[in-house]
């Protein structure tokens, strides 16, 4: 059994009087992938934002690599944990070239060798070097998401938080991005947490899945159990039925 990379225990997040995450706990082994499925408003993205440090109004325990995290993170934290957002257009600065976007994390962390690292990062996500001095609006949706992944990986993190990374993309591009994520995980021994509403996408990438509804994680099960229909909670069964129903090609 690989050592535990991520340990979330009784995570609670509040927006004013409204508790949107109500005591969520899960563990992810190093090099493993954990999927969180749920509908909008289930609190699945909020869990991710609390883990990434974007939202500091949480209680409970979040530990990464054995170290408990506080509300405020130091710079070193952001070298170990990175995030990829849903909308590849909204997550890239509209007025900066790809080169500038990719060099920013390196400048912040004082990493030298910027030139070589950017070239390597672009090659790793299979982007042509001609894309380097373009603006985001000159690239396609899939290329933009590749840039976002390259930016997340350029500071060489161990954990990647993926917030619906393919739901804004066409299905053919989705396949390319999912393959890329699988390759990168293997090559770099990354740990993933993938949030999505799409059961097929989640089970494709993650052997372990948590189901959220109304801010609670009502069930954790393996992807195999989910496939074979061995679910405990009715909401999981409902989501599964809808997904299976659509897959049956007439």
């Amino acid at each position: 059994m690989a050592p535990v990379m991520i340990d979330v225990d009784q995570l609670r997040v509040r927006f004013g009087d409204n508790e949107v995450v109500k005591g969520v706990s899960f563990q992810v082994p190093s090099g493993g992938s954990f999927g969180i499925v749920g509908e909008s408003g289930s609190g699945k993205s909020t869990v991710l934002r609390a883990m990434s440090g974007l939202n500091s109004a949480w209680t409970g325990r979040i530990a990464i690599n054995g170290q408990s995290l506080g509300a405020r993170r130091d710079r070193a934290f952001f070298r170990t944990v990175q995030m990829v957002f849903q909308d590849p257009y909204g997550s890239l600065h509209p007025r900066q070239t790809i080169d500038r976007i990719l060099s920013e994390p390196l400048l912040v962390h004082g990493i030298s060798d910027i030139e070589r690292r950017i070239e390597k990062a672009l090659a790793e996500v299979a982007l042509p070097s001609t894309a380097r001095f373009r603006y985001p609006h000159q690239l396609s949706g899939g290329q933009r998401q590749r840039v976002a992944i390259a930016r997340a990986l350029i500071s060489e993190p161990e954990t990647l938080l993926l917030d619906e990374p393919t739901s804004a993309l066409d299905v053919s591009v989705q396949a390319e991005i999912l393959n890329l994520l699988a390759d990168l995980r293997e090559r770099r021994h990354l740990t993933y947490i993938l949030v999505s509403h799409n059961l097929a996408v989640v089970t494709h990438l993650c052997p372990q899945v948590g189901v959220m509804i109304g801010g609670e994680m009502v069930e954790q099960l393996s992807a195999d159990d989910l496939r074979s229909g061995q679910t405990m909670h009715p909401h999981t069964a409902e989501l599964r039925a809808l997904s299976v129903d659509l897959e049956e090609v007439p």
Partner: peptide, 20 residues
């Protein structure tokens, strides 16, 4: 056919998705 094949599937897992 490519559009149908490149979809990830819940019941019929594919180790790698065919790309269009």
């Amino acid at each position: 056919r490519g559009l149908l094949n490149c979809l990830p599937s819940l019941i019929h897992p594919k180790s790698r998705l065919p790309v269009l």
